[in-house]
């Protein structure tokens, strides 16, 4: 059972959490095109490497948070500390193209 580093509760069993998938940013509904919007709805980077993703601490503090996890080794990068300013930003402000960094294609 993976331990997921909740920035508020500390490491907790993944079964206490809800997985919310890749962090992505929502296009502005006023100006979005079908291509952009469906990219947001359906497309995934799905790297074998570091992935920026969202979790919901559903059995704990009930906060959404964003972490980076390696999808092959299951490590978390720089796990955020509770209440610390180093907590990663939530998906809204996450950079576009999350999860496609240099190590994204590594196997």
């Amino acid at each position: 059972m993976l331990l997921v580093p909740c920035p508020h509760c500390g490491p907790r069993n993944s079964a206490d959490m809800s997985y919310r998938g890749e962090a992505s940013s929502r296009p502005d509904p006023a100006s979005t095109t079908p291509a952009q919007w469906r990219d947001y709805l359906y497309m995934e980077h799905n790297p074998a490497g570091w992935l920026r993703e969202n979790w919901y601490c559903s059995s704990g503090c009930r906060r959404f948070f964003t972490v980076e996890r390696h999808t092959v080794t299951s490590e978390f990068r720089e796990p955020p500390l509770p209440g610390s300013k180093t907590a990663l930003p939530l998906s809204k402000t996450a950079e576009a193209g999350a999860g496609t960094d240099q190590q994204g294609g590594e196997k």
């Binding site: 919310r20 969202n54 919901y56 959404f64 939530l90 809204k92």
Partner: peptide, 13 residues
């Protein structure tokens, strides 16, 4: 409930 929290926390904190 989770849906409401998600919008509040991630899009409109």
């Amino acid at each position: 409930w989770q849906w409401v929290e998600m919008w509040l926390q991630t899009e409109h904190p």
